[in-house]
Design a protein around this nucleic acid. Sequence first.
DNA 1: TGTATAAATGTTATGTTATAACATATCAAT
DNA 2: ATTGATATGTTATAACATAACATTTATACA
Lengths: 158, 158
Amino acid sequence: MQNVFAPHDHASCTQSALTTVERACAERGLRLTPVRKRTLEILLEGHHALGAYDVLQKLSDDGLADKPPMAYRALNFLVEHGFAHRVERLNAYVACAHPDADHTPALWICSDCHKVAETAQAAELGQRLGQDGGFSINTLTIEAEGSCQQCRGESSND
Amino acid sequence: MQNVFAPHDHASCTQSALTTVERACAERGLRLTPVRKRTLEILLEGHHALGAYDVLQKLSDDGLADKPPMAYRALNFLVEHGFAHRVERLNAYVACAHPDADHTPALWICSDCHKVAETAQAAELGQRLGQDGGFSINTLTIEAEGSCQQCRGESSND
DNA sequence: TGTATAAATGTTATGTTATAACATATCAAT
DNA sequence: ATTGATATGTTATAACATAACATTTATACA
């Protein structure tokens, strides 16, 4: 687990995500317009899920967008291209922790600190699960709500 | 996979779910009031997810409830006690396919026929996933969207 | 049997999340 | 420059959900 729960150098964490997305957009011919980039930055400010209207408020503060569709469009762009994830349980959005990998993430929502972490091993797992019933998966949502190690104040070997 | 996608004797399927829930309520001292029972019946009419307002409409037709909180209360009761599940991806609800077992279901949403099936093997799986990061899971959501075997028109051994 | 307590229901009002539909502007290629 | 595609601006409304408080009904037990 790429541990966003643990203390880390968040500035470089943000910077590297941003750079990676910029590169990915360049490579894939995607337009990381001002609203889109700012939306990503907003999500990157913390490892928390933000609702579309939270994002909209911040975009509005910056004079970049002031109506729901604008925020939803930017968020949908990010989600579609794997630069952010929608957290179904929260009707909210998180920046992707490793936007370059093609992945179906499992999301880990700490109900205490409200941070959301992500792991990538979900896809194979879904395939395995679906095999029995002959179900062919397009998209898979795996979200756990609970408490992270940091919030439980426990050591790693308990 | 308890295959709700495949043709089956739905009347007996419904009846047995209903009986099981009635028994469970009796055993656990829960009150399966008219609105609650009818709500369950409504969900049991098909293996489809229904939105709270769809349910409300039907309850209203029956003169049992006519305001949002009434439907939400009944639905929440069913969900809390494991007699129905909330489908996060759809903001909707399905009757539980095996309401007696204590389970964390994985839900299988066919985007073609819109039926929702359920399997029970999710819990262990979540535990395994969370172990690495020391994350302690309270609730786990696993939902796959895709196409069922029936809708793909494929044989079982492809 | 009356009364206390808890549980469920009824009701108003509003909060929150999301999109349809259509107009306008900008970009990218020829 | 023209065109076609993409993105943005805007209005309006749809869809989902709950807070807060009043009233009724069930249940327990004095």
